[in-house]
């Protein structure tokens, strides 16, 4: 295998002429086990730098700092890796908030239902008072409930004078 490219890259690395991308190529190359003897002495440098890049603060450092600045530490007692999640302390009010919402919704529905029912009843009563036919309990009724005519009866009353008029005209 030809390692000329790597050797050239390494030479440029020592001269500080490599870009960060080229340095990344070198790093990747030296991570592999199979490195030729001529390049082996330099492998340790890149391996050690990888290890140094992984050095981090002690585990309790984060919680210590958060308590120092007055922010809440992790509720689970552990570290929140990478700060991906934010733990929040739930108060009683916050915990009961869904129930408040449900109760409010039920109250609104009951109010609307009650108002609609009341409005409908009032309309029916007003119609009766004005002598207009209205439907009460599924049946049509007339003014004061005193005159309640059946459809057949109404039809008979309406047709009698009409027939008389027609007879008169034909004569």
């Amino acid at each position: 295998m030809d390692y000329k490219y790597i050797e050239q890259l390494l030479e440029r690395y020592w001269e500080c002429q490599t870009t960060r991308e080229e340095e990344a190529i070198l790093r990747t190359f030296f991570r592999q086990e199979d490195v030729p003897a001529s390049l082996l002495p330099y492998r340790q440098l890149f391996i050690e730098e990888d290890i140094m890049a992984g050095e981090h603060l002690s585990k309790d450092f984060q919680d210590k700092m958060l308590s120092m600045v007055g922010e809440e530490a992790s509720l689970l007692g552990g570290r929140l890796e990478g700060g991906c999640c934010k733990a929040r302390r739930l108060t009683v009010v916050r915990r009961l908030r869904p129930f408040y919402r449900a109760a409010g919704l039920v109250a609104i529905l009951l109010t609307i239902g009650n108002a609609a029912h009341q409005s409908f009843t009032e309309d029916a009563q007003q119609a009766i008072d004005n002598g207009q036919p209205s439907m009460v309990n599924g049946q049509w009724s007339m003014v004061n409930d005193s005159v309640t005519t059946q459809p057949e009866q109404q039809s008979a009353e309406l047709t009698t004078p009409t027939i008389d008029t027609l007879n008169a005209l034909t004569r």
């Binding site: 140094m52 890049a53 050095e55 981090h56 603060l57 002690s58 450092f61 984060q62 700092m65 958060l66 600045v69 922010e71 700060g83 934010k86």
Partner: peptide, 28 residues
Amino acid sequence: SFRTAVLPLGDRLFRLALRITMNRAEAE
């Protein structure tokens, strides 16, 4: 938030401090 804006800088600062002081406790 201290947690989101400042704490994430910690490890990188630590590595620099460690390289200068060469002592973990002092670096922290």
